[in-house]
């Protein structure tokens, strides 16, 4: 196991170590993951109740409800990713350990992305069932949209979770700062998902994927560059 790690370059190895550490913590507390998934499904149910039993409307907006459920769950998930460490005083330990702050960011952001991908895929089944939606496009493209959409949430989300981790009112501040930022990401993810669910006659999905890719490229680089200052603060 450690033999494979030593072949990786130093920074990448640190990212993988942080990622494994975070995923291990989440796995040990997997009851929390269940709770988060049930919360997301509850949100989906709430949308059906708020809109009413109009199958046509629900089917057309299934993609929007899915991403809003992911977004609402993401603040709980992101907030937790630093909470454990701040409460246990482990963040100082990590900073003192010979881990690059940027590696800490990319490890945590990757861990959050993987968890959000899992969440999105898990609630896809109830989404398809509840809203009587079918997948018109290919599942592979759906997976690409899920990966890019959740990655777009988790890069600025991880940065802001770290930024607000030691502040009062962090439960309010994180969504206040994060949600307006995510507008282009949400817009593109919802549009692409809706097109994949209902059919993409004009072949518009690629242009939304391009926007998602641009959003990800921007925030995975900017947030990675800024994160060391977040940890110092």
């Amino acid at each position: 196991m450690s033999g494979a790690h030593h072949r990786l370059p130093g920074a990448l190895r640190q990212v993988v170590l942080v990622l494994k550490k975070d995923l291990l913590i989440e796995w040990r507390a997997r009851a929390r993951g269940f709770a988060l998934a049930s919360f997301a499904v509850t949100v989906l149910l709430l949308f059906s109740f708020a809109v009413g039993p109009n199958t046509e409307v629900l089917r057309t907006h299934a993609g929007a409800y899915l991403w809003l459920a992911v977004l609402l769950s993401s603040t709980l998930l992101l907030g937790q990713s630093f909470q454990i460490e701040v409460e246990a005083g482990a963040l100082e330990g990590l900073v003192l350990a010979p881990v690059e702050p940027a590696a800490l960011f990319y490890g945590k952001a990757l861990s959050n992305t993987l968890q959000l991908i899992g969440l999105a895929l898990v609630i896809t089944i109830p989404m398809l069932a509840l809203f009587d939606a079918g997948l018109a496009g290919s599942p592979a493209w759906y997976l690409v949209v899920v990966v890019l959409g959740t990655a777009g949430v988790s890069a600025p989300g991880t940065l802001y979770a770290g930024l607000t981790a030691r502040l009062d009112n962090r439960q309010l501040l994180l969504p206040l700062l994060l949600f307006p930022l995510l507008v282009p990401c949400l817009l593109a993810a919802v549009k692409a998902t809706t097109l994949l669910l209902t059919g993409d006659a004009m072949n518009q999905v690629p242009s939304w994927l391009k926007l998602l890719a641009a959003f990800n490229a921007l925030y995975w680089s900017v947030c990675g560059a800024l994160f060391p200052r977040v940890i110092d603060a």
């Binding site: 802001y160 817009l187 549009k191 921007l218 800024l226 200052r229 110092d232």
Partner: peptide, 29 residues
Amino acid sequence: PERRLTVTAIATIVAFVDVPVVYFGVKWW
């Protein structure tokens, strides 16, 4: 004050770089 400087500056930079993406996103939308 020192932490506030960092937090404000980071939030401002992260918010501002979103502007072109928002603009083009809404334009396509």
